[in-house]
Design a protein around this nucleic acid. Structure first.
Lengths: 277, 277
DNA sequence: AGCAAAGTGTACAATTCGTTACAGTCTCTG
DNA sequence: CAGAGACTGTAACGAATTGTACACTTTGCT
């Protein structure tokens, strides 16, 4: 039941003053949710008690009661659309819900605008470095293998030799760091060091509280669910694939000859199983 | 600018208490819009002044200032209710649908019964070999890293040395092969050779027509969508995670001391970044 | 015209609010 | 181990909150 219906239900029984209040309320839905009695009184050009009486006439205990009711309704509306749908078909297991929600959120977090922002450094960069901890290695691998197919100079750095492999990084490079809760010291420090050199930093992490999110504007937040005893890699893999998608699209037709070449090599080395033979 | 970004901007400079507050705020977006200082303090298990300090650290004059800012942002969002939905329904629709369908199908294909069947060999096997081609490497990695945490003798074999590494396989072993359309010759032949030795073969593939599906009863079919120019790794990653989940559950409490040991090593080597310090 | 009832605003009481000052605790550092 | 500095909770205060009692005005009916 919405506030409109609630007002309509007592519509004809409203006094002139109460009618003005109703009009104000209907005109600005946030007024009830955020405003005080005084605010409403001023807006409806009346006194505070009239507001309270208005609330009681709608069937509430007082203004506070009315306001809480409105806020509750509004909270439900604000819940993500994915969440709302899931709630109804609750036959599924917890894991399934978690996974689908995580995928949904990832897709929402990486809408086209965000994706473009994050992908831009990866298009122009001379070299791309990919850093990742243990748990997010799958995403890092997907990014490596995808980007490698469409451009040169992509490197995945294992944590134990950050120092050695990154010493050649320059300001024309970009680095993508995957890191999730239980942030790795080495990832954070390496990212900081690279930033100091002037490398563009793209962070794939799981919270605005992540130390990485504080280092750069180019970050995105993923929701990482647990599948069994460990954290899922699905969000980071999806993020990596979307990034590859975006970069490929930006590079456009220049990637085609590259893929053709790859194809030729595969054919020559007889890589694939051909059922016809 | 969103509240998440605002928090991220000062992320690393937050004290432990403020971090708790941030978490509460990020967890429930309506808390800031509707809640009072006392509400927040109670939710974050701290005192009211800490809430105010949190607000000022974010760059506001006080809590009221912060709340008004949040409410204004929220009002703007409410003004255009279609915005949130429209954003996801644009160009991304096709990709999004494909992905969600692929996830759904994977979850359906790997219901509990199937999962049990596929996981059984992985519990008893002396050693586990994991084979994968280029495109499904992400799933293979997830399986390797997940299984390694809960049991011994798990090996990922790169394709170029199938022969060398697999020569020691015995009938007490199990092998998991990931392979998708454009089936790799090497994977298929290696699988065949292992079968001949008596190794249990679990195949993760994309069609009943796959050469692997013809070799064993223990196979599952995944639906692999395209994300951009390349095939997605999501289904194979999900399958791997579900397998790990199942194996972990079957092994039960025997995995706990193993994980504890890992935890201790991490702590000793100071692997993680602890913002609280 | 007179009177009752409904409508409305003023005044006040009781909370609760956000904020500030201050003191205690913990953590580094020399 | 002493002391400085950061961190955090307690106490207190003025401002603002809601709700209610009461008085004034308007309305409508006899």
């Amino acid at each position: 039941m919405s506030i409109e219906e609630r007002i309509a239900a007592v519509g004809i029984r409203l006094t002139p003053t109460e009618r003005r209040i109703a009009q104000a309320v209907l005109g600005d839905p946030t007024l009830l949710a955020f405003g005080t009695v005084s605010d409403l009184a001023q807006r409806a050009d009346t006194s505070r008690p009239s507001i309270v009486r208005f609330a009681t006439k709608l069937g509430f205990d007082g203004y506070s009661d009315l306001q809480n009711w409105v806020r509750k309704n509004l909270s439900d509306k604000l819940a993500t659309p994915g969440q709302r749908i899931r709630r109804t078909k609750e036959l599924d297991t917890q894991v399934r819900q978690d996974i689908e929600q995580a995928i949904d959120r990832t897709l929402e977090a990486l809408d086209h605008a965000s994706l473009q922002r994050l992908a831009r450094p990866l298009i122009r960069a001379e070299r791309i470095w990919i850093l990742s901890g243990e748990t997010s290695r799958a995403g890092a691998h997907v990014l490596l293998s995808g980007l490698s197919m469409i451009r040169n100079g992509v490197h995945l750095i294992e944590q134990h030799n950050f120092g050695r492999d990154l010493s050649g990084a320059s300001e024309h490079d970009a680095v993508v760091v995957f890191d999730f809760a239980r942030y790795r010291r080495s990832s954070v420090f390496a990212a900081q060091a690279l930033l100091d050199v002037g490398v563009s930093l793209v962070a794939i992490t799981d919270s605005p509280l992540s130390p990485l999110a504080g280092l750069t504007d180019l970050w995105c937040e993923l929701n990482v669910p647990a599948v069994g005893p460990f954290d899922s890699s699905l969000p980071s893999v999806l993020a990596a694939e979307l990034l590859v998608f975006e970069v490929a699209e930006e590079l456009g037709s220049t990637v085609h000859p590259r893929i053709d070449r790859l194809e030729r090599i595969w054919k020559q080395t007889d890589t694939f199983y051909d059922a016809g033979k």
